[in-house]
Amino acid sequence: MKSRTIGILGGIILALILVSAPVFGMDNKPPATVMIDSLSHLFTGVEFDHNLHVEITEGCSVCHHHRFGNGVVDENCARCHSECQGTFSPTCSDCHVSDPFTGKHIREMEANPNRYHIDIPGLKAAYHLKCLTCHIKEEAPSECVDCHARTDAGNRFYHSGKYAPADGDKNKNHE
């Protein structure tokens, strides 16, 4: 029972890992869509329409703070990184680890007392913080299931759908 619980919760983290390997081909062109599909346990995968988001945003740096040519937007980053020429990889998971709260990672962050970046969100948070902040602000879809449908395990986890409490349904006024 316990191991199952741990397994499921572990799944939530793993679920959000970006399958990011060939984001950029040799031709340096951004992908049309990105499948964020390791979200296998509680939610189904997200097919992220990269082209759409390229069209509607002002520049790559809106999402990728390791920008491509159009300067450092965040003034806090600019304090140090204004002269920076961008990074080799735009991949989120290069900096945002999938499990930020392991003892190993916490120790790593604390190993060098002079390290500045001790507050890097995990990958799951990096996505949600970026996506959702904008989606709420721009009044884009912002419910959980607007982006990723819930699996059966997810319904069980939330006590929702066919797992909803017997008495709960009649009081339900939100779907």
Partner: peptide, 28 residues
């Protein structure tokens, strides 16, 4: 915090707490 109540659901599951009165995705 966006009020998604996922933490409540996770806590309920982790501690084997009784079934909630309303689903955890019910924001009422």
């Amino acid at each position: 915090c966006i009020g998604c109540r996922t933490c409540e659901a996770a806590c309920n599951k982790e501690h084997g707490l009784p079934e909630p009165e309303l689903p955890f995705d019910d924001f009422s």
